[in-house]
Design a protein around this nucleic acid. Structure first.
Lengths: 126, 126
DNA sequence: GCACTACTTTACGTTAACGTAAACGTCAGT
DNA sequence: ACTGACGTTTACGTTAACGTAAAGTAGTGC
């Protein structure tokens, strides 16, 4: 019914509730409240997903906030938009660098694995 | 002549000398010494490159050390080799996840940028 | 009514990855 | 002999991203 508790999200994404509250302290998520209890909307859930994706990519939470905020039009200020486009471009460059890194690392891993397998073979064992 | 000073490497890779020494404290690089001065070989330089690549991918230094150590045959112990192959496989899974993340993020960025440009157009400005 | 469970706030603790400062050695140039 | 430029060690400081413990609230089952 498009509504989540903190422990539900915590289980779904395998993070502690402390972590989720921490993101709120930093202003990354702003769940509604029923009484004093946090109530998360699908949109809140999406933000959490994006934050965690950012983490997997090695972004800081501050960095993730900026990126996530790009998706929300909000400020229709021209200068703001131009800044955003620049930020997007910068981010794209970083990501392409990461793609390159990953590609190289994968190649290296293949090589390392092949070496391992060779070494295993030469021991006569399996 | 296949030999580098700490400041040379620091400039080449745009990190501080403190950072390079820190990696040595953690046992990630073991440069030779001329007197008490550090002397880096091409192999040391490569290790540094790999560490920094790991950083860009969001790996911990500890994590990077493990990966880098995969490249050096060294232990021809069968169990060791099998453990390495497993580690490599795990790493590969993480990297493929990252590839997915990046691909998604790039798509999102394209969308965000398109939205920005649309917003700019509608203001009549350029 | 009482235990249980899930939620809350407050606040100090911890770890990784360096930053930064102090105090010193060594060699090249003037 | 003095001044930089570059190197060294030692050691405390800092920031991000939570962990962890304490103490309280609020509904649910029996």
């Amino acid at each position: 019914m498009a509504e989540y508790s903190i422990s539900q999200l915590s289980k779904e994404f395998d993070v502690t509730t402390r972590t989720i509250r921490h993101y709120e302290e930093l202003g990354l998520i702003k769940p509604a409240r029923r009484g004093q209890t946090r109530v998360y909307s699908p949109s809140d859930r999406t933000r959490l997903r994006l934050i965690l994706r950012g983490k997997r990519l090695g972004l800081s939470l501050e960095n993730s906030r900026e990126i996530i905020d790009m998706y929300e039009p909000g400020k229709t200020n021209v200068e703001q938009l131009k800044k955003l486009i620049n930020a997007i471009q910068a981010q794209r460059i970083k990501l392409n660098q990461q793609l390159d890194d990953i590609s190289n690392l994968l190649t290296d891993l293949n090589q390392a694995e092949a070496d391992c397998i060779d070494a295993l073979k030469s021991t006569g064992q399996h």
